[in-house]
């Protein structure tokens, strides 16, 4: 059961009050009529589907009914951050990788560090063997 912080209500509420609405930050093409079939199909149907850090759109369906964004790990399901529409995430796969590298995070030999670690962070700290 997720315990989700709604950035508009300012409170943690349980998962059942919310609905996931797919990948966040997908911009509608400014001039749809000018899109090729390729570009329009990509916009409609193709998604990132990462194994690791993912930015998602959720709606507080039985609360304030506002849409907002969640940054979540798709293997551990840990919620790293929630933020309002129009804002950019402060935590990304890249930022985590950089932070872990500079902090010299050790990853257990052969194991996958799961809590908060992105795939690329794991990769970086394991070196070229992966």
């Amino acid at each position: 059961m997720f315990y989700i912080h709604c950035p508009y209500c300012g409170e943690h509420r349980e998962e059942e009050e919310f609905h996931p609405k797919g990948q966040a930050h997908i911009a509608r093409p400014a001039d749809p009529a000018a899109c090729s079939d390729e570009e329009w199909g990509d916009y409609l149907f193709f998604r990132d589907n990462p194994r690791g850090i993912h930015h998602e759109l959720w709606v507080h369906a039985v609360g304030c009914r506002k849409f907002f964004n969640i940054t979540r790990h798709t293997v551990t399901y840990e919620i790293l951050e929630t933020y309002r529409m129009g804002e950019q995430p402060t935590i990304t796969a890249e930022s985590l990788a950089r932070a872990e590298k500079s902090a010299g995070v050790q990853v257990a030999n052969g194991g996958q560090q799961t809590v908060g670690a992105s795939d690329s962070a794991v990769k970086d700290s394991k070196g070229a063997k992966v």
Partner: peptide, 13 residues
């Protein structure tokens, strides 16, 4: 479960 996941476990709701 409505959200993306690779965790091979489902949610209680």
């Amino acid at each position: 479960d409505g959200y993306n996941g690779y965790g091979q476990r489902g949610s209680y709701p």
